[in-house]
Design a protein around this nucleic acid. Sequence first.
DNA 1: ACAAAAAACTTAAATGATTCAGTAAAAATT
DNA 2: AATTTTTACTGAATCATTTAAGTTTTTTGT
Lengths: 352, 352
Amino acid sequence: MEDKRITKRLNLKGVAEKLGVSTATVSNAFNRPDQLSKNLREKILSEASRLGYHGPNLAARSLRRGRSDVIGVMLSDSLTYSFSDPMANQMLQGISEVLMEYNKQLLLFYEGKDNTAQSSAESLPDGFIFYGSSNLETFKRIVALGKPCVTIDYVQDKIPSVGIDDRSAAKKIAMHAISQVNHGTVAILGMKLVVSDRVCRLTQDDLDEKSVEISRQRLLGYFDAVTENDLTIPPESIWSVPFNTEKYAKIAAKEAFSSSLHPNIILCMSDVIALAAISTAQSMGLNVPKDVIIVGFDDISEAKHASPSLTTVCQQNAQKGKVAAKMLLENNLTNCILETKLVVRQSSSPTN
Amino acid sequence: MEDKRITKRLNLKGVAEKLGVSTATVSNAFNRPDQLSKNLREKILSEASRLGYHGPNLAARSLRRGRSDVIGVMLSDSLTYSFSDPMANQMLQGISEVLMEYNKQLLLFYEGKDNTAQSSAESLPDGFIFYGSSNLETFKRIVALGKPCVTIDYVQDKIPSVGIDDRSAAKKIAMHAISQVNHGTVAILGMKLVVSDRVCRLTQDDLDEKSVEISRQRLLGYFDAVTENDLTIPPESIWSVPFNTEKYAKIAAKEAFSSSLHPNIILCMSDVIALAAISTAQSMGLNVPKDVIIVGFDDISEAKHASPSLTTVCQQNAQKGKVAAKMLLENNLTNCILETKLVVRQSSSPTN
DNA sequence: ACAAAAAACTTAAATGATTCAGTAAAAATT
DNA sequence: AATTTTTACTGAATCATTTAAGTTTTTTGT
């Protein structure tokens, strides 16, 4: 029962004692100005500050109040990876803008590959935002806490989500790409189409495999466009990239270009992949867009500056975060589908 | 005294009662496996999980323990802005890698322009990392909490910091740039050289103004190189960019190129500024590097892919975060200066 | 078989703040 | 002046957990 702390931390009670008032009054000075006289309040605040007491302790406060004014953000892949992902950054930017406005704090959670270990910290936030496909176990555990949750780019029954219509956006850009050439031979570079840590060329069976939902939707959208143009995409012309990074995308792109397929249209499920594909094509002596059209998805900032600049689907990432945070804080939990826009640039314009 | 919660949250006590054991035993099951028999521990954990109890509440735990296993990161500019800053991202990536390893959580704090409001959440973290020049009031308040603190790219007396030798790195790249042309006319685009929200062309008085320390150091480094080459830089050839964004950098670059100065060397204090300067130069009909050499600082990922690719100083941002986090967690609080490397690319090679 | 040691478990104080209910004093109303 | 209302403040229960110290049970050693 002994206290290991060397110097006892100054607390509200200490301040109250110094001033000869009750703890309730000091607490009210910080939280409910209408509960005490203006004079006393000012005296308390200035004395507290002089003593080095900078306001109530969050742990104690949130224990008693049952809320913390902290919002938890669960990043699907390891945080490590997410911070280098331009999409996640923009989304976090949106969230933080809103949190700042509401004077809330942001607690980040990350899932490692096999790390679904629960952290005591999960009990702190008043609500959660999930970004991207979370580990289902973690997701369920947190939802079971009964706090408001919103997902971004991740659809789960009964949980409000913010996202885009991936299927129709994918169809839109595929339609455009196909319209740019006479005889299209399409290859697809997709994200996490199969469960694997390596780049995979798909087989028939893989089409039924459980993949990340947004990738599945985009794939369906591509198929819609292909079908409508009387083309076909055999599974062998689809590659699954395990992580949205340049490194893996280049491996996949190289395979695609060296294969007997000789594609002249590459549909990429992200800009990171598309940019890597462009650079791979160029290093293999192919001209983009004359020899091969390459399109992306996301419209990250590099897309505009690349050469050739990248045709892609613009989605409002920051807006996603904003909307999700607002939904949570205003307790307005209804699904939201944001608009997307086809952005045509050089990488799909062979005739110029 | 009444409980406003609708359904009382399941707690450790509840689990203990269901199992007919003491709360201490349940607590030990979660925290100190050696304090109870293996059988009972397994029984407790499985029953707890079955009941939907997912481990101790952070608020209560950290109140009692006096620590939270949460690390606070204070971002100098608003978080909003930091998330779009590639430098901050890499740094956060480094921090998070280490925190993940140590199973700690990350609580983000942000300072708005005039928002130095203290948040109750400041009392939670076991330690703080400051990134970049913080508001001094906030900084002092948090340091006064007596918890371990580390700064990154921000030097304050008695507080251990992680950074680079800005002055010598700046000198190094300036020496290189100057050596590439016969008669150098230098302009400098720097960050926050004066206190202002607008782009400013400096005057003599401004040189003594309080600017951000790392900018001041870089400026001194540029001066070192200029002096050593028997050149001069009047204050009128220096522009201060208020935020490290493309928008403001372009304004400054445009001013620099339209001025009667006609610089053929632009020393930029960040890659974001340098890339904006390149694009501005090109839109004004100037060839980089033939008409004007432009160099940056930081080596962000776009630097390599730009055309022309950007000569810059590579600094290990992720490493900064890693080192800072390790210092904090291993309680090894000593200053650390990381190495930098001059990366010569096309933007400073007029002869190729 | 008995004492000593080790293991297993419990009791209860402590952590720092919030807030309901109550009291006393001051102000307003009749 | 008496009564009511309002304001200003206090007392004490409560939030969920940890952990030192104490108690009981089991194991070990001789």
